[in-house]
C-alpha cells in the first residue's frame, strides 16, 4: 500500500512539473557572448545590399578578393577544373573593336532583383531574402542544377564532393555535403553582424580598394550616392535582371 502511494505521489509531482513546463520559461535564456554583436539581429526589408566595383582600381595581378573569399567561406577546391567551386572569380574583358586595354575585374553573384535562378528553382531553395540577397536554402536544395543553367553569370556551382573542416577554418560556415548548389552569399553571416563581405574588406586592405559595399536604399551611404552620380554599368543589362553588382569604368 505504501509503495503504491509513493508512486502516485511521484506521478502527481511529475504532472505539476509538465504542466508548468511547456512554453513557460522559468529561467532566463543564457546571455549572449561578450562580442559587440547583439544577440538578435534581423534582415530588414527596407535594405537593398549592393556592390560597386571600380574597374580602374582593379589590377590584373591581384586576387586578394578571391583568396579572402576562399578563406572566409572555406570554398573548396578539388583540383578538378570542372568541379571546383567558385564564389568569385577574376575575368578579363577585351574590347577588340574599340581597341581598349584589357580590363581585369571580379565577377560574382549579382544578387539580381529578378533572379532567373529563383524563378526556375523547383523546391523554393533559391530565394530572395527581404534585404535583396539572393540565397540558397541548402536544406531544401535537391541538387537539380536548373539554377546553374538559368544563371547567365555562371555564379553557381554544384558541390560534387563532401568536405571536412579545414584546419583553422571559419566555424561559422558549415562544411559541404555533396549534391547541393552554392554560390556567393555576399557573406550573409558577416552582413548580419554588421560587417562587410570578406572580399570587400580584403580589397581595401591589401588590394586596390576597388570594391564598395552597402545599402543602395539608404541615400546616405557612399554606394548609393556613387551609383546615383557616376555612370555605372551592370553586366548584361539587356537581360533586364537588375543586378546589384555595379561596375564603374567599364
Amino acid at each position: 500500500m505504501m509503495d503504491r502511494r509513493a508512486v502516485l505521489g511521484l506521478g502527481g509531482a511529475v504532472a505539476v512539473g509538465t504542466l508548468l513546463a511547456p512554453g513557460i520559461r522559468l529561467l532566463a535564456a543564457p546571455q549572449p557572448s561578450s562580442s559587440s554583436v547583439p544577440n538578435k539581429t534581423e534582415a530588414l526589408a527596407t535594405q537593398r545590399w549592393a556592390m560597386l566595383i571600380d574597374v580602374n582600381k582593379c589590377s590584373a595581378d591581384c586576387s586578394s578578393c578571391i583568396a579572402a573569399c576562399r578563406e572566409e567561406n572555406h570554398v573548396p577546391m578539388f583540383g578538378d577544373a570542372d568541379r571546383d567551386i567558385h564564389w568569385i572569380r577574376k575575368v578579363e574583358l577585351r574590347d577588340r573593336e574599340r581597341r581598349k586595354p584589357t580590363l581585369s575585374l571580379p565577377a560574382l553573384c549579382n544578387h539580381c532583383e529578378h533572379p532567373p535562378c529563383v524563378h526556375v528553382c523547383p523546391t523554393g531553395a533559391s530565394f530572395i531574402r527581404k534585404d535583396g540577397l539572393v540565397l540558397i536554402d541548402e536544406h531544401r536544395c535537391i541538387g537539380c542544377r536548373y539554377c546553374i543553367i538559368a544563371c547567365p553569370y555562371k555564379s553557381r556551382s554544384l558541390v560534387y564532393f563532401s568536405t571536412q573542416m579545414p584546419i583553422g577554418g571559419n566555424p561559422k560556415i558549415p562544411i559541404r555535403a555533396k549534391g547541393v548548389v552554392e554560390k556567393c552569399t555576399f557573406c550573409v553571416h558577416r552582413i548580419d553582424e554588421g560587417l562587410q563581405p570578406a572580399c570587400v574588406e580584403a580589397c581595401s586592405r591589401s588590394g586596390g580598394g576597388a570594391m564598395l559595399f552597402g545599402d543602395l536604399n539608404d541615400p546616405k551611404t557612399e554606394i548609393s550616392q556613387r551609383v546615383k552620380m557616376l555612370r555605372t554599368e551592370v553586366m548584361r543589362e539587356d537581360l533586364g535582371l537588375k543586378p546589384h553588382v555595379h561596375y564603374q569604368g567599364l
Partner: peptide
C-alpha cells in the same frame, strides 16, 4: 530556427545550432 534564420534572416545567437 533554421527557417527563421536562413530564410527570414533572424539570427538569435544564443539559440543557434552552433
Amino acid at each position: 530556427k533554421r527557417d527563421l534564420t536562413v530564410r527570414e534572416g533572424v539570427r538569435v545567437r544564443n539559440e543557434s545550432l552552433a
